[in-house]
């Protein structure tokens, strides 16, 4: 049984006629101990999907309009408040983008980690366990560091504290929402390395939300690419990153600057990332797609399994113009 299974998830912002669909029919599945990378640009719905897993979206304005989120077999969207609190932190933990803003500025970091223990493993809510967790995430001198306030730590150290706090209740799933975006390049590398090492050591599954395709390749087993509220391509990371099939994935990968190439024009995707509420009809990528045909603006294409374990939302994925 998969640890996490999202079926046909639909999330709106606002009600009735004013409702804007931010997530439209997302389906994902994650086995225990595996890592799934969820990739997309701003407004793609990747973070909204991630927050929905523990029902962390503020309602209103968000509305869970349809679908199921099965976490260890139970539908999160149907849980009562008390059950939800058990799941949050206990079964699924979060690491967020801005570690500085995600730690409460007025409490010592040791206390904040201990709180996570008190909520889910009260028997282990001791200084010794806090120190063990801080050591686990590579914080030097944890005995004195646990008495620090968040602002006294660097961004990298703050993110390590966030990870320690997330791991304290021994969750089965860690959702990392852009965990390195706010950090410096050399610190990014440290955090990704730490996550990879912890996954091996502790055996939890990771859902990694990122806009950075390079990071996905470092750590993920599978990748799902989102665009304008939908998954447009999904498959094993190694295969997908070497041989992207959807025109968006292809264009996105080409527009990432690399060190290898000499100074030359970058390949771009024309136009702007569509705003919520202004998603195009038919295939949502068609106005920016280099190989779009007239029919692309008409019928919305389905997400189809075109090869074993390779899902693509483009009926023309196999056409010669795309293979070039």
């Amino acid at each position: 049984m998969p640890l996490l299974e999202i079926r046909n998830l639909q999330i709106d912002f606002g009600h009735g006629l004013k409702a804007l669909r931010a997530v439209d029919g997302v389906a994902l599945s994650l086995e225990p101990g595996k890592t799934l990378g969820l990739v997309g640009e701003s407004g793609s719905g990747k973070s909204v999907t991630a927050l929905a897993i523990a029902r962390l979206l503020a309602c209103p304005p968000a509305v869970y309009a349809g679908g199921e989120i099965l976490l260890a077999g139970r539908d999160v969207l149907r849980l009562r408040a008390a059950e939800l609190r058990q799941i949050r932190g206990g079964l699924v933990s979060y690491v967020f983008q801005e570690p500085g803003a995600s730690l409460n500025p007025v409490f010592r970091i040791g206390g904040q980690i201990k709180e996570a223990l008190q909520l889910h493993r009260p028997e282990a809510a001791t200084d010794a366990e806090v120190i063990r967790l801080l050591k686990l995430v590579g914080i030097p001198a944890p005995e004195t560091r646990m008495k620090s306030y968040p602002h006294e730590l660097s961004g990298g150290m703050q993110q390590r504290v966030m990870i320690a706090m997330a791991l304290a209740p021994q969750p089965k799933l860690l959702v990392a929402d852009e965990p390195t975006t706010a950090l410096d390049v050399t610190i990014q590398a440290q955090i990704i390395e730490l996550l990879a090492q912890l996954r091996q050591q502790l055996g939890m599954a990771i859902l990694l939300i990122t806009h950075n395709l390079g990071i996905v390749g470092d750590i993920a087993d599978d990748v799902a690419v989102m665009y304008a509220g939908q998954i447009v391509e999904q498959g094993p990371a190694h295969d997908l990153l070497q041989r992207p099939l959807h025109p968006y994935t292809q264009a996105l990968m080409k527009s990432v600057p690399t060190l290898a190439a000499d100074a030359e024009r970058l390949t771009t995707i024309s136009g702007q990332v569509p705003r919520l509420g202004a998603f195009p009809t038919g295939c949502r990528f068609h106005p920016r797609c280099p190989v779009a045909r007239p029919e692309c603006s008409q019928a919305p294409p389905p997400l189809a399994e075109v090869e074993p374990r390779r899902w693509v939302r483009c009926p023309y994925w196999n056409s010669p113009s795309l293979k070039a």
């Binding site: 609190r85 058990q86 932190g89 206990g90 933990s93 409460n104 966030m162 706090m165």
Partner: peptide, 8 residues
């Protein structure tokens, strides 16, 4: 949000 994610 982080506090809610903890299960508080």
């Amino acid at each position: 949000r982080a506090a809610r994610a903890k299960g508080a």
